[in-house]
């Protein structure tokens, strides 16, 4: 229940932040990799650093993460199949051999079928995710956004202490 409330809070804050729809959508697209790929891998630390350092919506990235976790679980068999195909492709074998023997790269677990398959899946999906999210955010703000902003519920959410932390990372 608490997670659900947090998710709603994050979603509302993100949708009403000062960031442009493009920044929110970019945050969602980058954050979705955290949900689509298995979390505890080195590449996700790099992705998290990008989310923090790039001028994209942090809340959007968290929203993308939360939204794509169940999608990642659902698509695991597909990711495994895709990863297996890529890792077993004879033309790519020299690349994998080189990466395996390059310092630090093996800690990304790229040679795991689910990790590679889900990362490749994210690379393909990130562009459609970005455009869909940008369209969705723009439509929301143009239609019901202002009414939600005026509601008591929104004020309660934004008054919380966590919101102050969030403001630190809001897009400039």
């Amino acid at each position: 229940m608490l997670t659900l409330l947090k998710l709603i809070q994050s979603m509302i804050k993100t949708l009403h932040s000062e960031g442009t729809p493009g920044q929110v959508a970019a945050g969602i697209a980058i954050g979705s990799v955290l949900g689509l790929t298995p979390l505890l891998n080195l590449h996700n630390l790099l992705i998290f650093s990008f989310v923090v350092l790039l001028n994209v919506s942090f809340g959007g990235a968290m929203l993308g993460w939360a939204l794509f976790v169940p999608v990642g679980f659902l698509l695991d068999p597909v990711f495994h199949a895709v990863g297996l195909e890529l890792l077993q492709a004879p033309s790519l074998r020299p690349l994998w051999s080189t990466l395996t023997n390059t310092p630090l790269i093996p800690y990304t677990n790229f040679n795991n079928t689910v990790v590679l398959g889900s990362f490749a899946g994210w690379m393909l999906l990130s562009v459609p995710i970005f455009f869909a999210a940008r369209y969705g955010v723009a439509r929301y703000r143009a239609t019901i956004g202002e009414r939600v902003r005026q509601s008591r519920f929104y004020r309660a959410v934004t008054a919380s202490q966590a919101y102050n932390w969030y403001r630190m990372f809001r897009p400039g």
Partner: peptide, 14 residues
């Protein structure tokens, strides 16, 4: 692959 909440998959050595 390693045991985790997500599917383990296969880890391939090169």
């Amino acid at each position: 692959g390693p045991q985790r909440l997500r599917a383990a998959g296969h880890t391939i050595e090169f």
